[in-house]
Design a protein around this nucleic acid. Sequence first.
DNA 1: CGCTAACATGTTAGCGCTAACATTGTTGTA
DNA 2: TACAACAATGTTAGCGCTAACATGTTAGCG
Lengths: 343, 343
Amino acid sequence: MSKNKTQSRQRRGSHQPTLAQVAEVAGVSSITASRALNDPERVNASTRQRVLEAMEHLGYVPNLIAGSLASARSRFIAVIVPSLANTVFIEVIKGLQATFEAAGYQILLGNTDYDIEREHQLVRTFLGWSCSALVTAGLKHTPACRRLLKECDRPVMEVMELGEALDLNVGLDHQEAGRCMARHLLGRGYRQPVYVGARLSDDYRASMRYAGHREVLQDAGIEPLLIELDQLGSLEEGARGLERVQAHYPGADAIHFANDDLASGALLHAQRLGLRVPGDIAIAGFNGLPLGQYVTPRLTTIQSPREAMGRLAAEQVLRRLDHQPVTQPQQDVGFTLMIGQST
Amino acid sequence: MSKNKTQSRQRRGSHQPTLAQVAEVAGVSSITASRALNDPERVNASTRQRVLEAMEHLGYVPNLIAGSLASARSRFIAVIVPSLANTVFIEVIKGLQATFEAAGYQILLGNTDYDIEREHQLVRTFLGWSCSALVTAGLKHTPACRRLLKECDRPVMEVMELGEALDLNVGLDHQEAGRCMARHLLGRGYRQPVYVGARLSDDYRASMRYAGHREVLQDAGIEPLLIELDQLGSLEEGARGLERVQAHYPGADAIHFANDDLASGALLHAQRLGLRVPGDIAIAGFNGLPLGQYVTPRLTTIQSPREAMGRLAAEQVLRRLDHQPVTQPQQDVGFTLMIGQST
DNA sequence: CGCTAACATGTTAGCGCTAACATTGTTGTA
DNA sequence: TACAACAATGTTAGCGCTAACATGTTAGCG
């Protein structure tokens, strides 16, 4: 028998130094070492000093997984967005990330690719990581996912749009934004505006803006016209949108695009075609991206405070995690109509 | 005494159903329930069925933290980038995310804000989460961070640029890219090109491109000119760059911008100023962003395969995690000079 | 001087899961 | 028939940490 009889089982685990080893070197118990790190007020300064030196000496890296298991809370925040290709979500993520990171939380980023089944799966996974809170882009979930979010007993924040939320909600009223732009166009005297969006069944915030647009037109006795494209937000697709409007609705005098990428693409394409904007056709967008503010003529659009929305959402969640009362579970960040020279 | 004497300690933990409870409902041991989930081949089909039903019935969500602690591996991949404001990193992240997510890994995203001390801290935190591998943007680290990365015994991937890497490395040669564009400009007959970058000490990849640019100019006996701006990548800052070039170097006949955002901003601004591009001044960029390909005149730039770089990097890491041999630890993804009408 | 309160530290028992080893029963085959 | 090989399941002992409870030690006070 070559095997050691006194020691039966094989050792597992990594070869990293543990808190117990640190404690031994520092000549204290492991709970004291733990406290020196996580609750420094509760240990004597000189003891703390010794513990920290031992950590330094051993190259100790705290095992956060073990800590989370023992304390039944992780400092994870789940953030679920439909896409990373869209600047809009990136900016919201930036706001969330900056605020949560500063408060010592780590973001777990999930990408649904506009698939709410995928979202459900991500929620399950993130709950499995004992995340402290969840942030989702939008109010649309599968029924099972809604149930899970409702019963998970953690702050749930739904960002981007306002509506019947599960818990916390920070966003803006997209239907009203659609109305606002439509009113602007009618106010400018345009009588045949066309709404141009892409994959409206996926991008349902764009479809809500369309609903607002349509409402205003119908109230004014004008028939709402719609062109639906395939790609969500690209300059090239915007150019295609312009061409399709010209082909289908030769009398159109204005285009209300679902976003600035499409609108800017159309604007640049109009230039190439020698079309005057807004003389031959007016163009409007949504988002207030820098690009739209930098083309000539400057794009009329609706600015939404995306990074601020992320920050505000994070602050609300942090307040809830800190057991402070959240007086306004629903917050409207609003939007601004920015009138450029394109309408 | 109101306290129950038989049961001393207070219960901790969440109120979530556990594997043990699932196992009890299914009438098996918990390890069998575990296997039914993680290694389905190893349990009888009917047993598995019963276990899965019990999970469904109880609304069981696996506690991934406990699983990670027990198995000493988490399915986390640390991804550390200097900024989320830059499209370039977002696209690399997209490539990484898609590939890692498909393989069942979760990305832990860290943002250093161009601070390598912050990077070191993030590396420590992520090692604390027992991440399976680390991906960092760039080869620049603090000495302590290098040591940590070298000794952590996990795949370490450095993306973006090529050079003396710690372990795996996927990227492109920025100095060569700078040379390539400078050669193009000289080949076109420009004799007073100015390099315009922003915060070159932070954005050291841009400064490497400048080094290449300078080298070519010096070889040709031309004095290299440089303008340094404050904001890393914005259209507005590009316009400012154009104005500063005109003010400082009135004889300049070409501008080699550090990125397409700056270059596009300058291009759009030139239009407004009534400057002919490239007649009055030529403009070149770097990155191959869609915007640059969509302005008139089309921007001369260098296209780098960013999303593909992310995918390739992820595949290399996955191969390493899968114990497959990695024959080429360093991979050059190359770049393409795209000659537009702006030079 | 005895008593209490506040502080400093320690002991114990898990958190929920899985690796390692153990035990059955079942099949194939020499 | 005996024995290996395998398939299916179980038992045990942690992973590294921290909550809860326990104990010792000092300062403050009438």
